[in-house]
Amino acid sequence: MWRRGANLEGDTANFIETEQLLEYDKFKSSFLQVRGSIPLLWEQIVDLSYKPHLSVIEHEDTPMVVKRHFHDLMQRYGNTIAVDLTDKHGNEGQLSLAFATEMEKLPDVRYVSFDFHQRCGGSNFESLKLLYDEIADDFDKQGYFLQTSDGELVEEQKGVVRSNCIDCLDRTNVTQSYLARISLNQQLQRMCALTSSEHVCTFTGDEDLEIYRNLWVNQGDEISLEYSGTNALKGDIVRYGKQTISGLIKDGISALSRYYLNNFQDGIRQAGFSIPKLCIAIGNRPSPFQLNKFESRTLFPVASVLLIGSLTVTSITLNRASQNAQTVISSVICAGATAGMMALVKANGRQICSRPRLCGLL
């Protein structure tokens, strides 16, 4: 129900193919990349935490799941470079380690672990050159597609870079835009639009370069809106090569929106995706949308009222705490009750959060 990685057939929960197309003078070219969830069996159950706990599901078929996923990629795209952008500590680190362990069993796939947050510091776009330097030889061998206007094939892309973080949204989009820019530079040099010493980013302020960067920002936003309900984070890094104050504010608003949507709306959104796939009759079963007293839509308003009421009473008593000993005692009691209420709500977070309703029927 809560799985975010892959199913037993090796199909991942999130998988997107992005093709960058270019037409210049008498040439047409393209560069293709893919992104996808880490193809293990893993889950993440929302529980009011900002970052819910990641759990890797131990299953005897896990090696076969990973093998099926990458076999399919190689059948479709050729040589594959798997770039893992997840953190190497905490919950992400455990998932990344499990991924790396399985990838050691696939010698035909180049696996590269690149801790985006640690290496780029969250805002240094150019630090991705460290990643490119690591994969440069294989990346250049994969190449890109290039043909003349009369249809003569000049180059053919011989492989693909598969990038992932946890959600395959923010870090992944920044990384893909960087690799796409390198490929664009190679294509323009091959078309003689640039000399061997020139680079697209040397034309700072150029209108075409701004349009190109905005294309990647907009693409990241569209994918993120589809998957998370908000624009992608780190958009300014793609657009300007660095994080800005306004970008940080926008990212903060998007992060808060994601928190609300993840915890209280995504269950219904998942049902919307699942309905077209529902191929069996419910018959006399109770409606999967029927609420009971333990459902999130009944518990969330109650929990909200209790928390807001407790915080309000505590604030009032704290303002009067200096008047006499009785108000001090009342303030302490109210503060303790509020803390207890918050702990109770957090402990029952899984029951309060929205959950998928149709997965068990598929």
Rank of each mutant, 00 (worst) to 15 (best):
R350L: 03
I352W: 00
S49D: 14
V328A: 08
V328P: 00
G340M: 09
M74L: 06
L306C: 11
Y111C: 04
F289I: 10
G122S: 05
Q118H: 15
T86L: 15
G5M: 02
N324F: 07
M103H: 09
T18P: 00
A321H: 03
F99I: 03
L194Y: 12
T202K: 14
D150V: 09
Y24N: 08
V154P: 01
L73Y: 07
W42E: 01
M1W: 08
D170M: 01
L209A: 04
L131A: 04
D61Y: 08
N292T: 12
F294L: 15
E222H: 05
Y132M: 03
V160T: 02
Q351H: 14
F145W: 07
V34D: 00
E226P: 00
A13Q: 13
E155A: 07
T62L: 07
I275R: 09
R3Y: 09
G93N: 06
L32M: 13
S149D: 12
L106Q: 04
L184H: 06
V83F: 03
R110S: 08
S163L: 15
Q176W: 00
L153V: 15
V328N: 05
A339T: 10
D206Q: 08
F31N: 01
L179Q: 01
H117T: 11
D72K: 15
Q186P: 02
I268C: 04
Y212N: 10
M64N: 12
R119N: 13
E226G: 01
G220P: 01
W2F: 13
S49N: 13
V174E: 00
L318S: 11
L153E: 11
N164R: 04
P63M: 03
L307C: 11
L85Y: 02
H69N: 13
R239E: 09
I249V: 15
G205N: 07
C279V: 14
D140Q: 11
F273G: 07
G336R: 06
K129F: 03
N231P: 04
N14V: 11
D108Q: 15
E104A: 14
D221C: 02
N263F: 01
A337E: 05
A339H: 04
T312G: 06
C201A: 13
K346I: 07
R355W: 05
E134R: 11
M191D: 04
D72N: 14
Q187M: 14
D11P: 06
A321S: 15
D138N: 07
S113L: 06
G93V: 05
N263K: 05
L130D: 10
G205H: 06
R258K: 12
L73A: 05
P301V: 05
G309Q: 09
Q147P: 01
M1E: 11
R285F: 06
